[in-house]
Every structure is written in C-alpha cells, then in structure tokens.
Simulated scan of single mutants.
Amino acid sequence: MATAESFVRRLTRRLTEDPEQRDVEELTDEAVGTGAQRAIDCQRGQEVTMVGTLRSVETNAKGCAGGVRAELFDGTDTVTLVWLGQRRIAGIESGRALRVRGRLGTLENGTKAIYNPHYEIQT
C-alpha cells in the first residue's frame, strides 16, 4: 500500500510542479552526478569543469572579435562560452548539452565566462 501512495504522491508532484523548476533540478542533478562543478559555486580564476545546456548561440557576436559566443546553463547559473576567431563551430547550437573545461574569467560586464573552452557534446 505504501508503494501505491508514494507513486500517487510522486505523480501528483510531477503534474503540479513548475516544468521550468523541474528542468533546473534535472540539470543540476545531472551536473553533480557527472562530477562537474556547479556554476554558481565557481569563482574567477578557477580551472573548472561544467555540464549544462546551451541556451543561445551567437556567431560574430558584438564585442566577440568575430567569434562564437554561447550561454551555458547548468541549473544554477549561466556561463558565457567564447570561442575567439571562430565563425562557426560544428555541433554548437541552442539546446545542445555540453561538458566544458577551462579557466573561468569574466566579460566586461562582470558575467562569468570561459574563453576557448575545451568541450564535449553530450548525448
């Protein structure tokens, strides 16, 4: 009987909770489960490994010196990925899951950024 009650409780929670909040929790759990760091916990100057989803990708972005700029969201915070001197990078597109590694810096507006990160596309 307890199993049926817990199933109903989980189902009710899943149907009534905010889908965006559920997505955030899933992204955060996935990042922690792979041994990656949470973006919110990382500080400028650290060598970091993060897992997240690309929210947006811009090519030849203003202030990007003809490069590619993408926003990676891991469920806790957003980090801007900047590939200098690139016009396009195969596989780097909105909605794609990535694992990235590099030194955390900041953009001119104070936003967290990783320049020329090493990346792996997640499946």
Rank of each mutant, 00 (worst) to 15 (best):
M1E: 13
A2N: 15
A2L: 14
E5R: 13
S6R: 15
F7P: 09
V8Y: 12
R10N: 10
L11E: 07
L11P: 10
T12P: 06
R13M: 07
R13V: 10
R14V: 04
L15Y: 08
T16Y: 09
D18Y: 01
P19Y: 02
E20P: 04
R22F: 04
R22M: 04
D23Q: 09
V24A: 10
V24Q: 08
E25G: 06
T28F: 12
D29S: 08
A31R: 05
A31T: 12
A31P: 09
V32W: 03
T34Y: 15
T34S: 15
G35N: 01
G35K: 00
A36K: 03
Q37V: 10
Q37T: 09
R38H: 09
R38Y: 02
A39G: 10
D41M: 06
C42H: 00
Q43S: 13
R44F: 12
R44D: 08
Q46K: 05
E47A: 15
E47R: 11
E47H: 11
V48K: 04
T49F: 02
T49Y: 07
V51I: 06
V51P: 11
V51T: 08
G52C: 00
G52M: 03
T53M: 14
L54A: 06
S56W: 14
V57L: 14
V57A: 13
T59Q: 15
N60C: 09
K62D: 12
K62N: 08
G63M: 07
G63I: 07
C64H: 11
A65W: 08
G67C: 13
G67V: 08
V68I: 01
E71T: 08
F73C: 06
F73L: 05
D74Q: 08
D74E: 01
G75Y: 04
T78A: 07
V79C: 01
W83V: 09
G85K: 12
G85W: 06
Q86K: 15
R87H: 13
I89C: 03
G91P: 05
G91Y: 00
A97E: 13
A97P: 12
L98T: 06
V100F: 00
V100R: 02
V100C: 00
G102H: 02
R103T: 15
R103Y: 07
R103S: 11
R103A: 10
G105P: 04
L107N: 07
L107A: 08
N109M: 04
G110C: 03
G110V: 03
G110W: 03
T111S: 09
K112T: 07
N116D: 00
N116P: 01
P117Q: 02
Y119W: 13
I121N: 03
I121E: 00
Q122P: 08
T123Q: 14
T123C: 09
